[in-house]
Structures are given as structure tokens and as C-alpha cells.
Write a protein that binds this DNA or RNA. Structure first.
Lengths: 120, 120
DNA sequence: TTGACACTTTCCGATATAGGCATATGATGT
DNA sequence: ACATCATATGCCTATATCGGAAAGTGTCAA
């Protein structure tokens, strides 16, 4: 097995820096492909490919306007990611750097004691 | 070029589901490798490899205790990721679903009007 | 030293990625 | 129909992944 497809979820899709940059540019509103490509200094085909990935995970939408294709942000797919990260917020927003580790250790010790071997 | 290394950032490191699950388990405190492997139903070598990746991007720390190696969370590396996502918060936390798109369109239109053709 | 335990690393294969370049598709204008 | 502009797709290569199986390192106990 190789790495999970970039199109398998938002996590994988945004792992690529250029894709992230596209999303940031799109915060400013819809943009045609060429403008995105220029703005990020990449070839047009490459931009298209990245946009395809973002489209497949539904982080962007397309709209045809004449010959152009306007890509727009659909950030809803980022919400679960943001929420997942939120679960870690408490670990950097305070005491959790040294002092609390103590408590962790204690909890850890108790966990170890019962020597059950299974739990949930 | 292939995909960026999983060890190149937190973004890439957490793209893998199992790695994310490890981090979640670690929220409950330090854990030895075998327990993580069991908890996630993966082989112990596989767990070790994932932990290596997480260690390289500094999302976890190790500590030896006898024969065991206790892995602990170091969530600070997730903060930039969380912050990056925060930039998109406004796009799902309100009106930005249909109505505001309008405004976007207008801004977009003005952007297009100057009909420059080349920027830099 | 020997053995058992906890973990790490190496070797292997299958897969799919990012990017370059060429080409195909599709809409517009004449 | 044809040329042109704006995008998309196909083909190619190098690379690195995840996973399994096996072998290596390091610690403790007798």
C-alpha cells in the first residue's frame, strides 16, 4: 500500500503547500485558473491538476463564465479538520508544558497498575 | 517529483489517519508503543514507524522507562496548522454560504474590468 | 552469558504522487 | 469552418510512501 490518495480527504488534500496557497488566494474571491497559476508561479496544467484535487474533496467549486472557469472557495470541508485540531488546543494554551505532565504521569501510573491487558 | 515527505511538516504528518489516531490516544497521556499498537489494531513495527514520523516533525517526544519507550504528545507543532485553518473560519461561521458570494462576485467583476492583461 | 522482552530498523513490493511537456476539449468571434 | 483563447487531460519519470516479514539494538533478570 502506498500513501492514501490526496483526494481521500481534506487532510490529504491540504498536505500540499501549493494547494494550501490556492485556498488562501481563493479567500479573496473567485479566480480563474490562469490567475491562480500566475499568482503562485506555477504552470497552468499544474494549477489545473491541483484544482482538480481540491474539487474532488469539495474544497472548491467551479463556475463557467465564458471561456473562463472561476474557482471559488468552499471551506466547509475544512471545518472537520479545524475541529480535530481544536481537540489539541488545550495542550498549547496553558500549563500543559511541564507541570501538567506530572499529572499525566500519575494517571499513567494508575493505568498501568491494574495490569488488565485489555480495556476500552 | 513525488509527494512531499511525510516528515516535511505537521500538515503532511497528520495526513495519515493512523498517525492522527495516535495523537488522539496520546491526549490521554504518555503511552508505550505496544499499547498504542494494540489500541489501534496495527502491528508494533508499523506503530514504531508512524511514531518515528511524528517524532521527526516533533509532534511527540519519547522517554525511556526500563525496556519501554513512553511516547508523549507535543502538540505545539499543531498550532500553526490550527491557525492556518482559523483563517477560513469566517467562511463557514455565518453568511458566507450564498449571500456573501454575491459581494465576492462584485469584487471579482471590478478586478476584471481594468482589462489590463498583464500584471507582474 | 544467556534468555526474554520492548522496540527499531532494514528489505521488499505496490502504488500514486508532483511536475514537465504535448495534446485534447470547449467556448467565442469572424 | 476556422483560429484563438482558457482549461483540462494524457503520458512520462523519479521518488517516497505504507505495510508485512525478518533481523537488529538495547534493557533487565537470573
Amino acid at each position: 500500500m502506498a500513501r492514501a490518495a490526496t483526494t481521500s480527504d481534506a487532510f490529504n488534500a491540504i498536505a500540499e503547500r501549493q494547494r494550501r496557497e490556492i485556498l488562501v488566494l481563493l479567500q479573496g474571491g473567485e479566480r480563474p485558473v490562469a490567475e491562480l497559476a500566475r499568482g503562485l508561479g506555477m504552470s497552468q496544467p499544474q494549477a489545473s491538476k491541483h484544482l482538480r484535487v481540491l474539487r474532488e474533496v469539495e474544497l472548491v467549486r467551479v463556475r463557467r463564465v465564458g471561456k473562463q472557469r472561476l474557482y471559488g472557495l468552499d471551506a466547509r470541508g475544512l471545518r472537520p479538520v479545524h475541529e480535530w485540531l481544536g481537540g489539541f488546543e488545550r495542550f498549547w494554551s496553558g500549563s500543559f508544558d511541564r507541570l501538567d505532565e506530572y499529572v499525566q504521569d500519575l494517571k499513567q501510573a494508575r493505568r498501568e497498575e491494574p495490569s488488565d491487558g485489555d480495556g476500552q
